[in-house]
Amino acid sequence: MKLFSFLTPLRHTALILRLARREVSSRYRGSFLGLAWSLITPLIMLGIYTFVFSQVFKIRWGSLEEGTGEFALRLFSGLIVFNFFAENINRAPNLILENPSYVKKVVFPLEILPVTQTLSAFFNAATSSLVLILGIFVMGRDLGTAMLYLVPLWCALIFVTWGIGWFLAGLGVYLRDLRHVVSMGLTILLFLTPIFYPVTALPARLQKIIYLNPLAFFVEQNRNVFMANQPPDLLTLGIAMIASCIVAWGGFRLFEKMRKGFSDVL
């Protein structure tokens, strides 16, 4: 089916895995603790959130009456989704620009660059999720069967990220201002996404509007699954899946259109 043409970059599996592995390992290369940092960093972040929000600010999540660390865990679960998205999108406009030799000097499947980026960002999200799960256990709670919904949920999120990533990576070659716009946009998005607050804390009128932000759905559902063992509404999930495929397909098509000019621009 034409809609799934965006999956064709995946035939370069070996190259994608190699580049992604290299990307992840380079982050910790030469450091004493090595890969352990990928667990230590989110662990410390979660510790800081717990301390600040439950001891310093004594903030409660919406109207819920919950124990210590509830806010921090909910915040953290939202941030995992947001950071995954932001890490990809922030780098997307530079992906092609940073590798001019891949464009001009060798025959390189450029379309895999956003995919590789997603994979290494996903590694971070996965380790952070492990820390989140650890935190949930520490709080004396359990995970439920709703966890299974994480698979379609994250698939959809990854597709959306690819789609936007392809679009921005292609456009970034022509519009060098793009990266500034994108990094500013992400800061704004951080606050317009229900990470620090539940959607239900908003006035009814805004609750509909906030779902125009594609991340709002993923942040909210990811949190519900982890924190409340509450599966997403199947209809909404289905719509999200289809929409994410359309976004990925569109981004990929635009990228393929734009790439013809890459070697002439760089």
């Binding site: 070996a14 190259l15 190699r18 290299r22 060798v106 025959v107």
Partner: peptide, 12 residues
């Protein structure tokens, strides 16, 4: 060697 070899069409 590995990355470039893969780009040039060699399997691992």
């Amino acid at each position: 060697i590995y990355v470039n070899g893969t780009i040039l069409g060699m399997s691992t």
